[in-house]
């Protein structure tokens, strides 16, 4: 990427509701990574949530109303970047279909979908980034979140960038693509099943020998961190952006006590 002649794209950050509420550090890590990748980053004020809680509960009308809000908030940018495969997948793969009977809005939704990317894959696939300037001493294992993996094809991108983090050793789980059992409202609608699924997941994480677990979606991270914590595990849990941005020192890991 020729940073001298190429114009800096205007990128809108879609913070996502879980990052906003739970882990703002991920949003700031995303801004840092995007600026380092030569983007002008803005954070539209009118954003809230991608609408998945309504969409996946069968409430299409509310999902469509939320989607209209997103169309307003994110119009006019070169790209919309999201530190979540699940929310990016919602915009890219699902949102346009909410307007199948409304061609004008559908066209706008499709335009937004085509400009929307998950953070890490945006850095590699759109900005052509192959390495980051960051260091973290530890052994990390990466969990492939379902929506990122199967809707957006995110598999090698985070691993490629993590390979460039100084001091970081990467290991793999036996079943890195196995769902962690979060599933949005599933985790509270069917808690027994969800907890068994995440327990199978944490067993796989522990067996990998890693001392830090990374993923690109806060939902999965909170679920896995919550279970690891309940099991008394010392494995740290962080969003992949925190490590790539070299910001792990700024905040305790997810669920870790404040020093």
């Amino acid at each position: 990427m020729d940073h001298i002649t190429a114009p800096r794209p205007r990128v809108a950050l879609f913070v996502t509701c879980l990052v906003d509420f739970h882990r703002p550090s991920v949003g700031f890590a995303a801004i840092k990574l995007l600026e380092a990748a030569g983007c002008d980053v803005e954070v539209p004020r009118a954003q809230t949530c991608c609408g998945q809680p309504a969409y996946n509960s069968g409430d299409r009308a509310t999902a469509a109303a939320m989607a209209r809000g997103l169309l307003e908030a994110f119009g006019g940018y070169d790209y919309v970047v999201v530190p979540s495969g699940s929310c990016a997948g919602m915009i890219r793969e699902h949102m346009p279909h909410l307007f199948d009977d409304d061609p004008n809005t559908k066209a706008r939704a499709e335009a937004l979908a085509s400009r929307t990317y998950e953070l890490v894959s945006f850095l590699t696939d759109v900005r052509g980034q192959i390495a980051v300037q960051a260091a973290y001493v530890g052994t990390a294992v990466y969990h492939d979140s379902c929506a990122g993996l199967r809707e957006l094809g995110i598999k090698t991108q985070p691993r490629d960038l993590l390979a460039s983090v100084a001091g970081l050793k990467m290991v793999e789980m036996k079943e890195p693509e196995m769902c962690c059992g979060f599933g949005g409202t599933f985790c509270v609608k069917y808690p027994d099943i969800s907890v068994r699924m995440v327990s199978d997941k944490t067993a796989d994480i522990v067996a990998s020998g890693a001392d830090i677990l990374l993923a690109g979606d806060m939902g999965c991270l909170l679920n896995m961190a919550g279970r690891l914590s309940r099991e008394g595990s010392a494995i740290k849990v962080r969003h992949v952006a925190e490590i790539l941005a070299g910001m792990a020192g700024a905040t305790p890991a997810i669920g870790e006590p404040t020093p």
Partner: peptide, 18 residues
């Protein structure tokens, strides 16, 4: 209880992103 029956709830950082 649905969440905390088998998992701890990680605590938010405190100040929202916005």
């Amino acid at each position: 209880g649905g969440w905390t029956g088998g998992r701890d709830l990680p605590v938010p950082e405190g100040e929202t992103f916005f």
